[in-house]
Design a protein around this nucleic acid. Structure first.
Length: 389
DNA sequence: TCTGGGGTCCTTTTCCTT
DNA sequence: TCTGAAGGAAAAGGACCC
């Protein structure tokens, strides 16, 4: 199978190129125009990072801002220290979602087998796409890239390779707006010199552990004995690392998947205490439960398991789950069950985050149209109390 | 100076039943 | 009635990703 990985540069603002720009999380959305900012084409509501006070993290940053050490997931207050003159642009996820849809629709015109990987990324099975084999996939990649730009104005980086693992890595080679084709025979030259962290699935923890063991590059990882890696990282993880280093990956492009869980969580503006801020917490908790219920109803699922997540002021996290006999999407039942979970969690410390989660999702069967004679209006119980169901 | 929100998957621990 | 082993399900936590 030849795979193709496309990631669109959703969060780029050509009119701001050359300026340090930080795009912040939802909490940055109260921006006001910065005094002295000379940005005739800039979106309204821009201000300097130094004028920002509050919680939130950097969603993304331009290369100019990165030059100051600012990067994704960094706290905005920390970013403000490093680069106080950077402009802060509130994130607009509604708009990104709209562009995301358009980007995926364009690809679907050329390749029917698409795996959704979030708001700005997809995998495509090239073997199922007409013309996908020409020039090792480069020609189709070029066509799709141009079509995306025409339809959305966005640039897009594409990696083409024998499998998803390598395609993902290849897509990073010529960012932004690049195309990279990697063949199996390119492994040693193009993949092995990369840092292990570039493998999708090796995060900060695994990378640090590898570094401790003196393994920095994918090539060094490939030279390790499989058994030894399994001893160090466990049989499954070690095996996977070994295979990844050799560019082995037989995962198919998955075009459809059911959600496993659905959750809502919120970080408070200030840390709250279960006793002293009881009424505020209670209201937030109810809202979260109602939002989970609404999400379940909107997406057509019932949940078998309800859980809560707490993050304390010291950033420690705990979760508590409870599985119920009858799956539900009812806000009151979700709240009651989540409250039960909450009672089992330590509540002495102040809280910075509260979340409610529904898992063990069961799709609601599509209602079958009832036969005409079953719809005798006179026999339908009107105003049946909901609790009687 | 602290570190969002929404997910997935995996491992380990705990609990229940036989 | 108690004890221990075994196995499965549920719960809890960790790592990772976008």
């Amino acid at each position: 199978m030849d795979a193709f990985y496309a990631s669109v540069e959703l969060l780029r603002y050509p009119q701001l190129r050359g300026r340090p720009l930080v795009i912040g999380g939802s909490r940055a959305a109260t921006a006001t125009a910065a005094p002295g900012a000379s940005l005739p084409q800039a979106p309204a509501g821009l201000r300097r990072l130094r004028d920002y006070a509050g919680r939130g993290v950097v969603t993304t940053a331009t290369y100019e801002a990165r030059g100051f050490g600012v990067h994704s997931a960094m706290g905005l207050m920390r970013a403000a220290q490093l680069c106080p003159d950077a402009l802060l642009l509130p994130a607009d996820f509604e708009r990104y979602r709209d562009y995301s849809q358009r980007f995926k629709q364009v690809i679907a015109r050329y390749a029917p087998q698409i795996e959704d990987r979030g708001i700005d990324e997809v995998y495509v099975d090239l073997s199922a796409a007409p013309g996908g084999q020409e020039q090792g996939g480069r020609s189709l990649a070029r066509t799709i890239q141009a079509a995306i730009h025409e339809a959305t104005g966005l640039t897009c980086s594409i990696g083409v390779a024998p499998n998803k693992l390598i395609a993902k890595m290849a897509s990073e080679f010529h960012k932004p707006n690049g195309i990279a084709v990697v063949f199996e025979s390119d492994l040693a030259a193009k993949i092995w010199p990369l840092a292990c962290r570039k493998i999708h699935g090796i995060g900060p923890k695994a990378a640090a552990r590898l570094e401790q063991l003196g393994i920095r590059t994918v090539g060094e990882l490939a030279r390790c004995e499989r058994d030894w890696l399994q001893q160090q990282f466990g049989s499954r993880h070690g095996e996977w690392m070994y295979e990844a280093a050799w560019g082995w990956d037989d995962r198919p492009v998955v075009t459809h998947s059911e959600p496993v869980s659905l959750s809502r969580e919120t970080t408070f503006d200030r840390d709250l205490h279960a006793v002293y801020d009881r009424s505020q917490l209670r209201a937030l908790f109810t809202t979260l439960c109602e939002r989970v219920a609404r999400d379940l109803q909107r997406d057509g699922y019932l949940a078998r398991t309800i859980g809560v997540k707490l993050r304390y002021d010291n950033f420690q996290r705990v979760t508590r789950d409870h599985t119920i006999a009858v799956p539900t999407n009812d806000a009151a039942i979700i709240r009651r069950t989540a409250a039960q979970c909450l009672r089992r969690a330590p509540l002495e410390r102040r809280l910075r985050l509260l979340g409610v989660k529904a898992s063990g999702l069961v799709p609601i069967a599509a209602p079958r149209p009832a036969p005409a004679d079953a719809l005798e209006p006179a026999e339908l119980p009107l105003f049946e109390p909901l609790s009687a169901q």
